[in-house]
Amino acid sequence: MNTATLADARFGVGTGDVTLPRVIRSEWTKLRSLRSTVWTLGIAVVLTIGMAVLLSVQASRHWSVAEVHDGRTDPVFQTLGSLLLVQVPIGVLGVLTMTGEYATGMIRATFGLVPRRLPVLWAKIIVFAGVIFTLTLASSALAFFIGQGILSGKGLSVGLGSPGAARAILGAALYLTLIGLLGLGLGALLRHTAGAVTALLGLVLALPFVMELLGQSFHHAERYTPTLTGEALASTSPTSVTDLLSPQRALVTIVCWVLVGLAAGTVATIRRDV
């Protein structure tokens, strides 16, 4: 049975069915029309570049060429390490993508227009991931090149062609995007900004500390916390030195974290009243 046959043909002139591309366009309009989005992303870029400059200047004063050669220090991670900090604004922006709508009641307008709800979640994921990945890839690459420029003065730099360097830049962008999506999933699950941000910070900041405090027996497990997978993805030192997961395993691990978060958020989005 076709809906069009049931609808009164006199009304609804100039409208079409709800489709995923249309919902994506809607979500893109929502994201770009908030000044807070622009500000948050601006802060993320400034942090990424600024930290790379600071850490590179620091390293150029203290590192020796031999250390870099042995893999005991990592000029690549030195320029990308800002992700440990940048993950906070990106993750919070992911949270706000969902909770901003619940806080204002806008979610009822949104789900009223797209009552199946899932297209809204997909559209938010696609738009958010697209924007964040593009931006963090560009800012990570910029941070890498600026940082290596500073390190090159002391002969400590590596090029984009050196083993793992390009992968680390890509890994940093992927990691930040995934953390943003984890925030989005937590926002969809918890619906309240404060609760979801707390949960997110607990996972990315507090969890590694807690495991550290618990001592040696948890040392192995610590590598599986989100933040340390981010480190693994953006590092080029051998895992024997860093004691982190390999980049491949780190990627699988962080993807699992994010999938669990998004799955929980999806179930809550579909099933709960709004």
């Binding site: 709800v18 249309r22 919902v23 309009t29 029309s33 797209v114």
Partner: peptide, 12 residues
């Protein structure tokens, strides 16, 4: 922009 975002869902 609020109305535009809502309108886009139905190609309005």
């Amino acid at each position: 922009n609020h109305l535009l975002a809502l309108a886009h869902t139905h190609g309005v």
